[in-house]
């Protein structure tokens, strides 16, 4: 029972959702809609668990005065303050909660994201070396496409935007399609193994 029940649940929900796909009847649609909510609700409990973990880790760090313990105070107080302001102060456009989001969280996220402008340059510099024929092809296409996307590219050669467009819509498309077909077959097979109870690593190993 202890070992079987989770596998039975997996199988029943899995097959149930497959069958649901083929039934246009409103009852089936209603079940599907309801099931999405169920998954969202269940997932929310994991957030509770995750946040609990964060509290434990940071609390221990503070209590034991581990290196950087005071940084944990920042995380915990930011977490508590933001959550409380949101829950008690509302989350509409003009709330303090939104200000925190717009002027603290968002700028830092955007700044993190924009680090990529630097990283992409350094990655290209380091690894775009014509070591092998394959690497050479990669570096040449990348250069063509890079130039084909900016005005200066068409100053160098008029046809560059056209070539860029052509590479993207033929060779590049073909390879992506090939990879995606394989990925599709692989992920369907894995999903089927999950339903059959053969793939159960998500249950936390062995038993």
């Amino acid at each position: 029972m202890k070992r079987r029940l989770p596998l039975i649940i997996v199988m029943l929900t899995g097959i149930g959702m497959i069958i649901q796909y083929f039934i246009p009847h409103p009852v089936s649609k209603a079940i599907y809609k309801q099931s999405i909510d169920w998954v969202i609700i269940i997932s929310a409990f994991y957030l509770v668990l995750g946040v609990g973990g964060i509290f434990i880790i940071n609390y221990q760090k503070i209590k034991r005065r581990k290196e950087g313990w005071w940084l944990s105070i920042i995380t915990l107080s930011a977490l508590i303050i933001t959550a409380l302001i949101g829950i008690f102060g509302g989350i509409d456009n003009k709330s303090v909660f939104m200000d925190i989001f717009m002027y603290i969280q968002l700028p830092m996220q955007a700044a993190m994201f924009s680090l990529l402008a630097f990283y992409i340059a350094s990655a290209a510099f380091r690894s775009f070396r014509a070591r092998t024929p394959e690497a050479t092809v990669l570096l040449i296409t990348a250069t063509i496409v890079m130039l084909g996307r900016v005005p200066i590219g068409s100053l160098i050669y008029r046809g560059l935007p056209g070539i860029t467009e052509w590479i993207l819509s033929t060779v590049s498309l073909a390879a992506q399609r090939g990879i995606l077909l394989g990925v599709g077959l692989g992920s369907i097979a894995t999903s089927m193994k999950i339903i059959l109870g053969i793939e159960r690593s998500y249950l936390g190993g062995g038993e």
Partner: peptide, 22 residues
Amino acid sequence: MNSQSMAHIIMIILIILGNISY
């Protein structure tokens, strides 16, 4: 867009330099 063009050019110069040095 000017910034964009400049950045792309710098990247390409870097790639070329990298290859020459290689």
